[in-house]
Design a protein around this nucleic acid. Structure first.
Lengths: 393, 393
DNA sequence: ACAGTTTCCCGTAAATGC
DNA sequence: TGCATTTACGGGAAACTG
């Protein structure tokens, strides 16, 4: 049977794209020998509560493919029953009421109605998207939900989304980096982000952040804080992963603080920072130089975009960057990566034969506990990865 | 009702991609007033002959969407009957036996069996592809078929594909340029192509070219003559259309002839030519210069690819190209476009504000006659454009 | 093993709906 | 009218298959 190719976002469970396959395995954690070979599981997707009653009158979503399966013995797992649903494609019309209300449940029910417990379970709330461009917002919803509630099926969560504290948000943001790269966010980086969300403040701990602050357009900008940050995460993963993993990218630093830490440094000292104005994610460098009068100047280039990084690696750009000096000679203004790493030491090894980025980054993107929900004795791995990702339960 | 967006290849009828919509209109050219409002047309796709008998036992292709339509009065067209089939999506399994045998027919049949003529028609043979990367080969099949036969439905044409003469092939090749740009191929360009196909020869007229020569991998190369040329056509259309339309691109010229015509010219004379080694389509320039000893040298750069032309237009590349001269000063080796057009006159206007290519190129890619087939009184526009292209019949 | 063919699905652009 | 959302489909890459 055909295996789908690796999707771009295997690390973002609980988001389903219409027309894209996903799989889901249901296991029976308790053995009922008399039920072997006759337990059927039906799957459907709905906003309802999970009661069997709600299944009638079900509407809006079509789950394509077989939606009923007979559970069978699992070889690997001490003989417990399981059923794996594949090909749950789901393409057609749905009535999403905007992002806020668009949480759904995937329901699993058994045909076992002759014993007096109803075997059923469901996923955590999922978000359905129709185009990959909706992934950032969808993932933001998943993050906010799991950050702020342990409720297993509150599909109306976003009708009045709770506020989070900066401490919670900070943990989630750092985790978004650490789960897909080898490095999370430092206190300094997080403080810069806090200032971006909340304005200047002595201590951000305990400050409240609304869903709107997190995911609605920032004042005067055409994009939200999260979309901006998510594009930076994407930039890091695809273009500058090695440099990020090495810790060479300060990334999030305010212009004021940048000036403060660079000014005392010798000319040629530079740091790498993300663009604040670009929605698409950009990275630039800022360096110290002395002007003709010997006055210290802080300079930087226009941020590099993903397009530009396609044709040359950022390490090569840094190593090769030259400007015209006062005597009309081309010189590199970049000498020491802040605080004082010679740029050759930091970036030389990523230049020569074509800086090969390391695409293998491990890490579970979401605390496993959050992703499972139990109801009676049925268990669904709500971690709805595509088929390549065998989930050890 | 939704209109699909403009496909990339509206100029390549008779090629159908699985999963992509196409439309087809059937008209009744003779009026039978008593038949109005009760004439139904059924469509199907098959390798068979077009006999009604062949419809039973039809298999392999699913035409999705409504495959039966009632013909209705056409407002614009003096009250004749017509039926337009939209959404003839066709996605699933088929049994193609390789490119050679993969011609199919689209059959249209009416329900009118109470009068003793059977109203039916069919398309010219079509090629079904499953990925756009198969388009070049598919289009080559269509070209070869229509170049060499007038048979309306010889689906077995490629079981023993006839040879063509160079004269026929030359006409088709030139037409591939003239139908999508404002300029066909000159005798000189065609002669270069003939030499590539047939080797050195005094007079190519009457020489025979096999299907294999045209469409199977060239000796020692991983691609066919046609794939190479088609990628050049694509390069021209997408990246250097204006320059091509102006006639600035000599393009096809052998290295020997290039040397012969450039050598007598003053240093700085250059011409533009396509890469012979790149499957993907590349363009380069070759110029005359004098070496330190005053000896005439012919120089050229590595061909520019589509990737590189994405970030800078070819005109800008030409205008900005500089090399280090003997005294270590950057100079442009390009002065006169062959024979003696100052490069500023030719390319200056395509540089400044971002060379805006003119995407509007008219021209019917294929002689209309070839594209229609008639059977009794039904007529199908086998020119299966997507919906944007209203076909004046 | 391999090459021809199909499937998968992202990402841009266009169309649609609200 | 504008914005949110969906559809269309090219294109790169993986998977499949004879």
């Amino acid at each position: 049977e055909r295996q789908p190719c690796m999707p771009m976002h295997p690390d973002r469970p609980l988001v389903i794209k219409t027309g894209v396959q996903f799989t889901n395995k249901v296991r029976l954690l308790v053995k009922f020998p008399e039920l072997n070979y006759q337990l059927k599981i039906k799957v459907c997707i709905d906003k309802e509560s999970g009661d069997v009653a709600a299944i009638r009158g079900s509407r809006k979503f079509n789950i394509l493919g077989t939606n009923t399966k007979v559970m069978n013995m699992e070889e690997s797992n001490n003989g417990s029953l399981s059923a794996e649903f594949k090909h749950l494609v789901r393409p057609m019309h749905l009535l999403l009421a905007g992002w806020n209300g668009s949480l759904f449940l995937i329901l699993f029910m058994s045909n076992c109605i002759d014993i007096d417990l109803i075997l059923q379970t469901h996923s955590l709330p999922v978000v359905v998207i129709s185009n990959i461009c909706q992934m950032p917002n969808a993932w933001a919803s998943i993050l906010w939900y799991n950050m702020l509630t342990n409720h297993p099926k509150n599909v109306n969560f976003f009708t009045k989304p709770p506020v989070g504290t900066w401490d919670q948000v900070a943990e989630v943001l750092s985790w978004q980096f650490s789960s897909t790269t080898k490095r999370g966010l430092t206190i300094e980086q997080l403080t810069t982000l806090a200032e971006k969300l909340l304005g200047p403040c002595v201590n951000y701990s305990g400050c409240q952040i609304t869903w709107a602050k997190f995911c609605k357009n920032m004042a005067g900008k055409g994009f939200s804080f999260w979309v901006w940050l998510d594009n930076i995460i994407d930039l890091v993963k695809k273009y500058i992963l090695a440099l990020w993993n090495e810790g060479y990218i300060m990334g999030f630093i305010s212009k004021e603080r940048e000036r403060a830490i660079l000014s005392p440094k010798p000319p040629g000292t530079f740091l790498l920072r993300f663009s604040e104005s670009s929605k698409e994610g950009g990275i630039t460098f800022t360096w110290v130089e002395k002007d003709i009068n010997g006055k210290t100047q802080i300079q930087s280039v226009e941020p590099y975009t993903k397009q530009q990084l396609n044709s040359m690696s950022f390490a090569e750009i840094i190593m090769g960057y030259k400007i015209m000096d006062a005597t009309n000679i081309l010189v590199s203004p970049l000498v020491y990566l802040f605080p004082e790493i010679p740029k050759e030491d930091a970036f030389g090894k990523y230049c020569r034969p074509e800086a090969v980025p390391e695409p293998d980054v491990g890490g579970d993107p979401m605390n496993s506990e959050l992703l499972f929900s139990f109801s009676f004795f049925l268990c669904s791995d709500a971690y709805m990865n595509r088929k390549h990702d065998a989930l050890p339960l």
